[in-house]
Computed example of a mutant assay.
Amino acid sequence: MPRSATTPFKNRILQGAALAMIGLALAGCSTTKDKMTTGSIPASTRPVESMDVNEVRSATERAGQIYEKNPRDPVNGVYYATLLRSAGRDAQALAVMQQVAISNPNDRNVLAAYGKAQAAAGQLQQALDTIGRAQTPDRPDWKLVSAQGAILDQMGKPSEARARYRDALDIMPNEPSVLSNLGMSYVLTGDLRTAETYLRHAAGQPTADSRVRQNLALIVGLQGRFSEAEQIARRELSQQQADANVAYLRSMLSQQNSWQKLASKDGQQPNNTN
């Protein structure tokens, strides 16, 4: 896509999409489930992405207190960093993971979470190297392969990124998070129709979660089909979460000519259903 066609608004959308991809790619890599150490978080802790703002604040306070007592604990350290990132405190999350990684240099989950924190802080090449260290060639983890793809996408290397996604799909066919990342990769290069194809395939998988469907809602909305996007965004979410997501969609799509420009680049005429 020509550089001159890229608007500041579009840059914000695409940067946000790339960061969301990294988060989705590493979902499931960031907790150490096979061993719980003294003082670690309970195994029944709710996923961070399902918490509201108050729950995140409270959980962050508790995890921070545990971290102060034992900064070497890999389970709580990863959890604490995840909470910090969810609150937008990326620099602090990176500092936490640096300390945890020093104490657990061979823990794959720690390295994966460290790479995630580096990517969120904009240290993309370092993140790629860290996740590469977490990988084992004889038993590759598809989540890490997909995460490498997400980082390559943010580095502006879509061909390499998509190759990594397809490698991940060879290991885990029809995995919705990988299909979602592959679809979002096409968003980054302005191919919204191809992106929608992959996102619909991802959303149709039995194990697809709400983040995949929110990505689909974004792609549909960017093509001007806002009523359809709103219906997708409201599925399987609490009223509060749905209202927040729809408000975010509306704020993006209300920007002057934003989705029209994206749609025209994709060779489509927008359908204004606002």
Rank of each mutant, 00 (worst) to 15 (best):
L182E: 06
A161G: 06
T82G: 14
Q99D: 12
S50R: 11
L26W: 10
V246H: 04
P158I: 00
P270H: 05
Q268Y: 07
R72V: 08
A147Q: 05
Q92I: 13
V75T: 14
M51E: 09
A242V: 10
Y114C: 02
T189C: 07
A127D: 03
T207Q: 13
A95D: 12
R62W: 13
M21I: 06
A120K: 00
P47Q: 09
D129G: 12
S185M: 02
R225N: 15
N271H: 15
L253S: 04
G221D: 01
R133H: 13
I151M: 05
T189R: 08
R211E: 13
D167H: 10
R3W: 05
M51P: 11
M155T: 02
V48M: 09
V48W: 09
I41S: 03
K143R: 12
D141T: 01
E175F: 11
G132L: 11
Q260F: 03
T130P: 01
H201L: 11
P105L: 04
K116R: 10
A18Q: 04
A113I: 01
V100Y: 01
P42I: 04
T45G: 03
D52F: 08
A59C: 05
T60Y: 02
N54Q: 15
V212I: 08
M252H: 08
R139S: 15
R12P: 06
D107S: 08
D90E: 14
V53N: 15
G39C: 04
P140M: 01
D107L: 03
G149A: 00
